[in-house]
Design a binder for these strands. Structure first.
Lengths: 228, 228
DNA sequence: GCCGCACCTTGACATGAGTCAAGCCATGAC
DNA sequence: GTCATGGCTTGACTCATGTCAAGGTGCGGC
C-alpha cells in the first residue's frame, strides 16, 4: 500500500462524496482532509486482516474493497462489497478495537485512511456525525440480517437469483462486476457450485450467460426463486 | 401484550440497568421513564414481526426476547437472544423504519417500550446517548460477523461446541437456558440434527446430556471443535 | 390413574452442496 | 507458433444436513 500526495481540496471533495461526511460543514471537512492519508492499493492487496489492531478507519475513494472472513479450509465468505464513498472498518473503532474481518482491494483502489484520534476528536464537537454513523451502522445491520437469512434459510439458487437481480439493477443485460469466484464467495458457496447453478438457470431458459455478460430472460422466475 | 402500571421510580431503576442508559443522568432518565410504557408479555408472545412498521424500540426488563427470521418453509433462525437490560428493535429506528426481523418472548417477560419521538428528543441533547448507541450497534455487528462466519464456514458440530462453551460460561455442568428446539434455531439447524450432534458428542465421551442438564467432560475437545 | 400434549429422539431416506481431479479456453510471454 | 497461466467448467463422488414418519418420555389437567 502506497501513500499518495494529494492536496486538501481534492481530499475534501472525496470526503464530501462519502456516505458519512456528505453533510459535514466545510471547516470540519478541512480538518479532516488535513489529517487524512490517501493510499493506493493494487488489486488483491490487503488493507487489514481479521484480528488486526485497528488504528483508524478507511473510506473508499475509488475502486472496490471486499470485507470477508476466511474459514480454516480456505473458503471465503464475503461480508461486504464497498465502493466509492463507503466506510470500511468502522466497527473496530467502537467496540473491541480489532477488526472482526479482513479487507482487500477487489481491484486497484484508492482509499482514505482516518486515524481513530482524528475521527473521535472531530465527532466530539459534531454530533451530526454521530447520527450519520448510526445510520451507517444500522444499514450494515440490516444488510447482515438479510445475509444471515440467506445463508441459513435459503439455498444457493435463491441467493444467486437475488444477487443477479440486484446487480442487474433493473436492466436485463449487464456485466458481472466481479469474477465468478468472487461472486461465489459473496453468496456463500464455491465456484464449482456457482457454475452449476448458472448452467441450470441457463438450461431452464431463465438467463443467458456469455462469459461475464448476463442476460435475464425470465425476471419473474428469478424473483420467485429469490423469494419474492 | 398487556400494559402495566409502574411508577417512575421503578422504571428509572430498570433503565439504569440497561446497556444504553446506564450513564444517562437522572433528570433525563426521569423524562424517559415518564414517557416509557411497561408491558408484560407471555411466553411465546410476539412483540413484532419482520416488516412491521417500527414506532419505537424496546428494552428488556425481565425475561428473554428472541429476535429471529423465519424462512418460507417455517424454519427459524434466531439472530439475537436478549436478556434484561438489552435493547430490541433499535435498527428500525435509524434506517428504513420497519423491523428487519421479528421478536418474541422466549419466556414470560416484561419490556419497556420507548416511542421513537421520545428517544429522538432525548438523544438530541444527550450526545452521550448517541455514543452509547454506537457502541451497542457495533457490538451487534460484531455478533453478526461471527454468526455469518459460523453459518457459512463451519458445520453444525462446530457451532454447537461454541455455543455450549459460551453457555457453560466456565462451569463444567450447567442447564440449558432454552429448549432444544430453540437451541437448534440459534445454531441454524433443526431439532433432529441437534439431537444427533449431542448424541454423537456424548458417545465420544465429550459431554454428558441429561435432559436439559449438560456436563462438559472434555472441554479441550470442544474448544478444538469450535475452531480454537 | 389416565389422557393428551409438548418436546425430544430415532431411523430411513433424499438431496444440496462440497471435494477432487481433469480438462477447456483465452490471454500473454517468449 | 507454443507454452504456461488463471479462470472457469464438468463429471464422479462423498458427506452433511434436511425431510418424513414413527415412537418415546414426562408433565399437567381432569
Amino acid at each position: 500500500m502506497q501513500n499518495l500526495r494529494a492536496d486538501v481540496k481534492e481530499l475534501m471533495q472525496l470526503l464530501q462524496q462519502t456516505e458519512l461526511f456528505a453533510e459535514t460543514d466545510l471547516e470540519a471537512l478541512e480538518t479532516l482532509a488535513a489529517a487524512a492519508e490517501l493510499r493506493a492499493c493494487a488489486r488483491g492487496e490487503i488493507l487489514f486482516n481479521a484480528g488486526d489492531r485497528a488504528t483508524g478507519l478507511y473510506v473508499v475513494a475509488e475502486g472496490r474493497v471486499l470485507v470477508s472472513r476466511v474459514g480454516r479450509d480456505g473458503r471465503e465468505q464475503i461480508l461486504h462489497d464497498f465502493g466509492p464513498g463507503e466506510l470500511v472498518g468502522e466497527v473496530a473503532m467502537f467496540s473491541g478495537g480489532d477488526f472482526p474481518a479482513g479487507a482487500q482491494a477487489a481491484e486497484a483502489a484508492r482509499v482514505l485512511f482516518l486515524s481513530r484520534d482524528t475521527f473521535v476528536r472531530l465527532a466530539h464537537d459534531q454530533p451530526d456525525l454521530l447520527l450519520g454513523l448510526i445510520a451507517v451502522l444500522s444499514r450494515r445491520l440490516r444488510h447482515f440480517v438479510h445475509l444471515v437469512d440467506d445463508l441459513s434459510l435459503k439455498e444457493v439458487d435463491a441467493r444467486l437469483a437475488r444477487i443477479l437481480l440486484e446487480m442487474a439493477a433493473g436492466e436485463i443485460t449487464f456485466e458481472l462486476p466481479m469474477s465468478k469466484a468472487q461472486l461465489a464467495a459473496r453468496i456463500g458457496t464455491i465456484p464449482e457450485t456457482l457454475s452449476r447453478c448458472l448452467k441450470r438457470l441457463q438450461n431452464n431458459g431463465v438467463i443467458q450467460v456469455q462469459g461475464p455478460k448476463l442476460e435475464l430472460l425470465k425476471v419473474r422466475v428469478l424473483q420467485q426463486l429469490a423469494g419474492e
